[in-house]
Design a protein around this nucleic acid. Structure first.
Lengths: 112, 112
DNA sequence: TACCGATATATACAAGGATACATAACGTTA
DNA sequence: TAACGTTATGTATCCTTGTATATATCGGTA
């Protein structure tokens, strides 16, 4: 059985900025309150997760995630309202594309 | 300036089957009548182009490209009507997604 | 039968990204 | 000041993908 898949993402200055990976990561950070735990939850290396957060924060007016090291619990990660809004809009966009794809199965009819 | 990008493709048994690369390759083969020339036109190695054609032909009821070796001109590549139809449908689908994205700029408004 | 131009196929190499591992830095708490 | 858990960062390695190169194969033509 053949299936149509899609992926959408945001580019900034010709480079990947935001996509499925960061979107899931933000959700996990919000749930866990820790970058390391969030990365672990989705089988992503801490280094990659940290790099993603840097990319988001360094290429936006407002930060996405506030990282704190040291302190009572060793530190932690906090998601800004700005980032939460972006996650909502990204999910909404994905859903709309999914609905469109359901109505556009002509391609699959050709591929037997 | 941030831009929304997308990509859609067809999977078969969990593996990539058809996407932007094969779509462009089919067009080039149709124009050139040769797999080697088509690959050259789009800076794709012959091996990769040949592998793509094998994947398409081996996972479909009807062939996409008929390859002939030897003969008057050394051989050649011919695109089947089946494949031409698929290219048309794929282009149509991409266009519809593009139109959808134009109307869904809410995500970009959040990403400053 | 020798030549030609295209397909067919194997092998080794290069490049990029992802991963694993190790270690430093930090700030609150006791 | 020692301990703790998290963030911060470098390095080496693997792995996948693509590329380069070379050679074999085929069948019509002269």
């Amino acid at each position: 059985m053949k299936k149509i898949k899609f992926k959408c993402w945001v580019e900034y200055e010709g480079e990947k900025f935001y996509g499925p990976g960061p979107n899931e990561l933000i959700k996990q950070i919000k749930k866990e309150g820790s970058l390391a735990k969030a990365a672990g939850q989705m089988n992503m290396s801490y280094k990659k997760a940290w790099s993603l957060v840097q990319r988001l924060n360094n290429n936006s007016e407002d930060p996405w995630v506030i990282l704190k090291k040291g302190g009572q619990h060793g530190g932690g990660a906090e998601v800004t309202p700005n980032a939460i809004k972006a996650v909502q809009e990204y999910d909404k966009l994905q859903q709309k594309i999914n609905e469109l794809l359901k109505q556009q199965e002509d391609l699959l009819k050709v591929l037997k």
